[in-house]
Nucleic acid binder design. Structure first.
Lengths: 152, 152
DNA sequence: CACTTGCCTGGAGTGCACTCCAACTCTTTA
DNA sequence: TAAAGAGTTGGAGTGCACTCCAGGCAAGTG
């Protein structure tokens, strides 16, 4: 509940699905886990779990051993959040995180990985679209029936 | 493996994701579970499980107790497959199946249920689109780096 | 008649992505 | 100084959607 209100500098936002957009406290550089919970909409459990499975770059610690997230961490979590929303398996995200850790010589493979995912997303959009047609058709039938019974 | 080849009457198809489209054996009216497996791409386990949880209208049986699916069942499985592809939870599909069983007085609620799902699908399409932008951006960066190193 | 194939059942197991628990430490507030 | 609150850990538990297993029955083939 310790929400830090920074002056309205810039307004980078978190894009958690339907949640109202949460302003990132800009100007600060180290965030507690609860601040990151606030910002990302993920639970603290999940944040720690992401770290355990290697989905996070090394998260800094305070002198007492508590996590202190940086802006770069928030950027990374934004990307992870998007990949997650588009259904990329956690294992693939971990793979991508590994590639990032390995440095620039993995650019080509990162490109391949993201391209494959992009194809997947495109395919899924097409799939959703075609289902939308079926839904429209069904809903129209029910709506027609309703209107008919209302007229009766 | 007992695939029934019907003469090419009409060509209604099954829309299982990337699988090649399977022609429905038209002209026949009762299908074994393995034929339905072939047609839907679902496993026999899953088909039996759908029945257990109430996601299927009553499936007919042969005199020896084996399932005999009808064309109506295949139509239903087409719809279920689409709802599934668009991420409708099985519990919601079961709810819809119940409404269908209850008859015409549930038209209004069926309309509501499908409309809600349609909204969901639309929202997800928008979400996927916006992620596509991020992916394009990232992939461009990697591609540029690759081209730069190829020139070097 | 043996064998293979296809299908049946209830119930247990799997994989994924979290989600929670118990027991603890550290910091802040009354 | 006592109590509340935020954070720590490893490991166990949860919910979803299958997925598989053991053991058995029925029909067709050599």
């Amino acid at each position: 509940m310790t929400v830090i209100d920074s002056p309205p500098v810039e307004v980078p936002v978190c894009l958690e699905l339907d949640r109202q957009r949460v302003r990132r406290p800009e100007g600060r550089e180290r965030f507690t886990i609860s601040e990151v919970v606030e910002y990302t909409g993920l639970s603290a459990h999940t944040l720690r779990w992401y770290e355990r499975i290697g989905l996070m770059p090394h998260v800094d610690r305070s002198h007492t051993g508590q996590r202190r997230y940086t802006c770069r961490d928030l950027d990374w979590l934004d990307l992870v959040g998007r990949l997650r929303l588009t259904g990329m398996p956690v294992a693939d995200m971990v793979r991508y995180a590994e590639l990032v850790r390995q440095g620039e010589e993995t650019f080509a493979e990162r490109e391949r990985l993201l391209s494959a995912h992009r194809d997947d997303v495109r395919r899924r959009i097409a799939e959703l679209r075609s289902t939308l047609d079926v839904l429209d058709y069904k809903i129209d039938i029910y709506a027609d029936a309703r209107r008919a019974s209302e007229r009766a």
